[in-house]
Design a protein around this nucleic acid. Structure first.
Lengths: 192, 192
DNA sequence: GTGATTTTTTGATATAAGTCAAAGGAAATT
DNA sequence: AATTTCCTTTGACTTATATCAAAAAATCAC
């Protein structure tokens, strides 16, 4: 899925509008393990993942990494609060696989938002979708066992879960690696 | 805080624009314990709370209520996913205190969004804010003790926490009433 | 004000998951 | 291919919180 396909799925831009919008995006090829953003910095870019996979994570008080979200092909990626409000980011953005991204700076995005009524609608819909997915995670994790949380993870990220290290998955789900290992073992035993 | 103040805080509408927008809102006086929305129904209205307090909640598998969010004076309230996508709501919306609300239907909101570029921006900013507050909850609860969760609750809702029943607070924080009671007791002991 | 109902607290016990440590396996590096 | 590093699993033990039940307190209805 390309950026233009994604945008067209949300709002019916004209070809002319799309062409103009795409002039403000830039292609970036990035390597696994690159940090696109470090906590404390302001996130000045919104990224679209054409190929590859990434995650946003923060460090908890004991210094351990906690994954906040995973981003796969066909998704926008950012530290949303930092990008939209231009404030210091709580998160790091890390590339998990060699990737091809399309990025746009905050300034250019603000320009497009002011220029195109449709662009405002588009990013509004994107924001609502981000909210919806986050609520889904809250509801699927709170008051749920570790096993149920793992089931949610598999259903939320069916196409990329198998490409993610178990340590990252555990932290995303709010559990320890040991716990995840145990429930995965129980799950495989139960399938026999 | 009035609806117009709230909107003006987000986007500089003209007086004329605001007047037009307010023509689409309706004042509603509602009583404590009223259900504005039942799960399974489509949420057709977005509410602004002028006075009072409400919550959104869902039923978990064992039939117990889990509060998803609290809404106080000066806030918009809805089952966001249901309202914006016009899909069946997972949540109930319950009035916790006699309230004065200003409501707008989905159809009228869509009309205003199409009519005013500024309105799209306004609701985009509102959506981002909703997302931000939800992330704040996730980060404050995941990998945190029950006490830490309670501290987050007090800081998130300083003006309304004392008006909310402890059972609702407990479910909002993802813990049992018993646990909340115990940490509150420990907190009061420690303050001596 | 009285009785009924609901909410909060308390006590005892159980349990799911965390913590610590190390073994085993897989991937990366040389 | 051998070695090093990182990831995953396993075992033993601990702990924070859930569960169950009931007492105490607060609120509601008449």
């Amino acid at each position: 899925m390309t950026v233009t396909d994604f945008l067209l799925n949300l709002v019916p831009f004209s070809q002319e509008e799309l062409n103009d919008i795409m002039l403000h995006f830039e292609e970036e090829k990035v390597k696994k393990n690159e940090l696109l953003l470090k906590e404390g910095k302001i996130c000045n870019k919104l990224y679209f993942i054409q190929e590859g996979m990434s995650r946003s994570y923060y460090l908890k008080e004991d210094g351990k990494e906690v994954t906040q979200w995973f981003f796969g092909e066909g998704q926008f990626m950012s530290s949303a609060d930092s990008f939209f409000n231009q404030t210091a980011s709580f998160y790091n953005l890390e590339i998990l696989e060699d990737s091809i991204l399309y990025s746009i700076t905050f300034e250019k995005m603000e320009f497009l938002l002011a220029k195109y009524h449709k662009m405002e609608k588009c990013i509004r819909l994107l924001s609502i979708e981000m909210f919806t997915t986050l609520i889904r995670k809250m509801n699927a994790t709170q008051f749920h066992t570790a096993k149920e949380k793992y089931d949610y993870m598999i259903s939320e990220f069916p196409n990329i879960a198998h490409r993610i290290s178990l340590g990252h998955i555990a932290s995303y789900l709010g559990m320890t690696q040991e716990t995840l290992s145990r429930i995965r073992k129980n799950e495989s035993l139960k399938k026999k």
